[in-house]
Design a protein around this nucleic acid. Sequence first.
DNA 1: CCTCATTATGTGCATATACATATATCCAGA
DNA 2: TCTGGATATATGTATATGCACATAATGAGG
Lengths: 150, 150
Amino acid sequence: MMAAHKKETTMPTMPCACANLRRAARSITRLYNRELRPENIEVTQFTLLMALDRTGDISQGKLGRLVSLDSTTLTRMLKPLNKQGWIQEREGDDRRVRIIRLTTAGRAKLQHGLPLWKRAQTRIEDTLGEPSMKKLEVLLARVEAASESK
Amino acid sequence: MMAAHKKETTMPTMPCACANLRRAARSITRLYNRELRPENIEVTQFTLLMALDRTGDISQGKLGRLVSLDSTTLTRMLKPLNKQGWIQEREGDDRRVRIIRLTTAGRAKLQHGLPLWKRAQTRIEDTLGEPSMKKLEVLLARVEAASESK
DNA sequence: CCTCATTATGTGCATATACATATATCCAGA
DNA sequence: TCTGGATATATGTATATGCACATAATGAGG
């Protein structure tokens, strides 16, 4: 006969797309942070270093738009990076603007973190496989587009 | 001739799966929060109400495992819900445990929020379409599985 | 019944994140 | 040149999130 016992499954999928996305984001964030811990940097910060490495000098506002972060959020997120000496800020020609740049130390931190980042990244890639990986990327971009159009 | 001018595109996709996921999560979170604002509740809180509605009375720890949230995070996330009177906590038989339950007010808030939540949800569903929606769900679950296996 | 390993939750600390609002600039007209 | 609207960033406030660590309670052996 059936036991009147609720199995403790890991969990069911929710009907809410936002909940599912946030949940996956939390999970994967923990993974990347675990790997990056030895370098004493978190994935959110590492992501900013990556972005800055690609863009070169850039204003806070532009960077925010680029990574889809409220620019006032960036004001605070940049502080720890500054404290660590990974970035530097200077005034732009337009004196309202702050131009951000990766420092030598920042570039070094990025280099040192890369292998650790790669471990986490590879884990996801190996599990999903190239095609699924690409598909996910596309779907995420579509979600973002749908979310932002006014 | 070509202008030596960098177009200000909205942005390129990053090579980091974690960055892409977090970014999409931020975007979609803003969408759901915009819709839910009239009911004065945020999507993270709304998600917890939804979860509690499905599980019925449940311990903090189990709830955390269910939604993939560190149980100590839950300690704090539950506070605003309590303040609003949407949930209630009581001691379990095991006196270490806290049992959470949705109150009548909580259930009402859930009901009132549903149409607003649905607006955001529909927007995503309509943009992606049923098959992509399902695909995304599956991919997110796989990401989570990959992230959690030790 | 006592003790120790295990388990559930709370706290300290740090960061992430957004919105409303404030402040400093810039700039297009009058 | 003066002025009001637009733009870039900062601050106040609130919540989200996790880890290391602290505390309380349970339960298995001895």
